[in-house]
Design a protein around this nucleic acid. Structure first.
Lengths: 194, 194
DNA sequence: CGTCGAATGTTGACAGTGGCAACATCGGGT
DNA sequence: ACCCGATGTTGCCACTGTCAACATTCGACG
């Protein structure tokens, strides 16, 4: 296995193993030395590819963000952008993603390093999953002649509900069962009146 | 200052300083040795009062939970339990509390060690702030002859919205301003139709 | 093909962390 | 007056992230 001095693609391998550790053992278990060992490499090799542990984590975060974004996009690929169903499917997919990958949740939002633009103007930099929600809100609002303020309000409520519902469902100490899809349905029923 | 061998009430002092460190410098900065030094005491003295760092944190969590609970109770002390306003005031107070003490948020919900009972039956052990929401939901639902399922649904949506909105507002990388009280108003308007 | 610099890995060290064990000091009940 | 338990201290350990110095390999250029 470890017959060469050089690893080949250590950077990639490190990310893979880091993600796997987070995914299997939780975020707190991620260790530079542990990840390095799993890659069959000595601890300081990490620093040839990442400046610090935090930067490795950032990279993992980006990776997970891409997974989530793709997951969300796939969930609404057949929807009319301005239909009421799009926003609901986005919310559902958001919750579902973290139910399938619970350990990603804390790693992504720890210290909330995610950039969110709470405005309806287009901006260059925004957290991509949030951007999907924002665009969907705008499509929906524009098709109905709603103001920017109403739209922003809708965006905040939708995102908060999806995010809050997720953190509620993810929590390891929650007992009882909740029909969370029904929850979202109720909310969107109230919203759209349909 | 440090003329006596024994501290007097080290346990209490440790909690105070730990809370202060979390409050001022953020959760990650809390260190057993640091807190001990601030109390003018050598590092291992902590272990005469707490089994581990995690247990000290747990105790701080309880302290903050009591603060939050009192804050919530105070916010609705003049409300009719079954009035639509109660649930809204609870939500507002929940968000307001963490806007006033942002650093408490991550310390309370890190690893989500909070016990939540997602049922409408009375249980002995439940996270007190959540219990306030639950009781308020039940009062509201019973006064209107709603089913337990509808009530649980309301509870989940209300809690999720408050919690999600908070985490959205707390996030250090959020730009733009949001009228979060209006957000809550909209949601409760949809809910109650009033 | 040979050489040399840049990229990549390794070893060793350091300070800081949580936690354990053994010892020191105090204070209250007999 | 004594002594035992509660409380604090010192010293140590394994582990962590990070830095510096050294080793190996790859690839571009002659």
């Amino acid at each position: 296995m470890k017959d060469r001095y050089h690893h080949g693609d250590l950077r990639h391998d490190l990310i893979e193993h880091a993600i796997q550790i987070i995914s299997e053992n939780g975020f707190e278990q991620l260790t530079l030395r542990g990840a390095a060992k799993q890659c069959g490499v000595s601890h300081n090799a990490v620093y040839r590819h990442f400046e610090s542990k935090e930067q490795l984590i950032d990279t993992c975060r980006m990776y997970v963000t891409e997974l989530l974004t793709a997951y969300l996009e796939d969930a609404v690929k057949d929807q009319e952008p301005a239909s009421p169903g799009t926003l609901r499917e986005l919310s559902r997919a958001y919750v579902r993603f973290y139910l399938e990958h619970p350990t990603y949740f804390s790693s992504l939002y720890r210290n909330s390093p995610v950039k969110l633009q709470l405005t309806m103007e287009d901006t260059e930099e925004n957290y991509p999953p949030f951007e999907l929600f924002r665009k969907s809100c705008r499509s929906w609002a524009e098709a109905r002649g709603r103001s920017d303020a109403e739209c922003l309000d809708l965006l905040a409520r939708t995102w908060s509900l999806a995010h809050g519902l997720t953190s509620l469902l993810i929590s390891p100490n929650v007992e009882g069962t909740l029909d969370w899809e029904q929850c979202l349905d109720t909310a969107f029923l109230q919203e759209t009146g349909v």
